[in-house]
């Protein structure tokens, strides 16, 4: 049966971006305030789930044309790469580096290699969660 979901679909388009922006915010806030890659990733997942709820798999796939398995792999590589960078300097694995910079617009910010690691976490969480949801949803 074809259903009329105009209300939901319209709001979703707006709400999706709110959630997504919020997730990005939480992701970057992670190092200093609650948040981080996990929550960020899961929130993004939530946003995509909302899209899936309001629309359908095919539409969402068209809108977000990623291969989520590959995204997972990239995330893992990113995380591993950050950690393994230490090998080239012959310091223990996972030795992070950070420094404080004064950037225009942001004021004093710290640039931390951990953020790359966290980005890996983010990607993996999104990738695998969506892989799972897509597979189950796509199963007949």
């Amino acid at each position: 049966m074809k259903t009329n979901d105009v209300i939901l679909q319209t709001t979703t388009k707006v709400v999706f971006f709110i959630i997504f922006l919020f997730s990005i915010h939480i992701f970057f806030a992670g190092h200093y305030t609650p948040g981080g890659g996990f929550v960020g990733g899961l929130l993004t997942t939530g946003a995509i789930v909302l899209l899936l709820l309001a629309f359908d798999l095919k539409t969402v796939q068209k809108a977000l044309p990623f291969n989520f398995t590959i995204m997972t792999a990239i995330g893992l590589l990113l995380a591993l790469g950050t950690a393994a960078g230490a090998i080239f300097f012959n310091v223990p694995f996972f030795t992070h580096a950070f420094d404080y910079f004064t950037l225009p617009l942001f004021g004093e910010t710290s640039l931390h290699t951990a953020i790359i690691f966290d980005a890996g976490v983010f990607l993996v969480v999104v990738g695998s969660a969506i892989t799972i949801i897509q597979s189950i949803g796509g199963d007949s």
Binding site: I7, L8, T11, V14, V15, I18, F22
Partner: peptide, 13 residues
């Protein structure tokens, strides 16, 4: 504020 806005949009839906 964002939360207030969000609730305002989504709760009725």
């Amino acid at each position: 504020l964002l939360g207030i806005g969000f609730l305002f949009i989504t709760s009725p839906i």
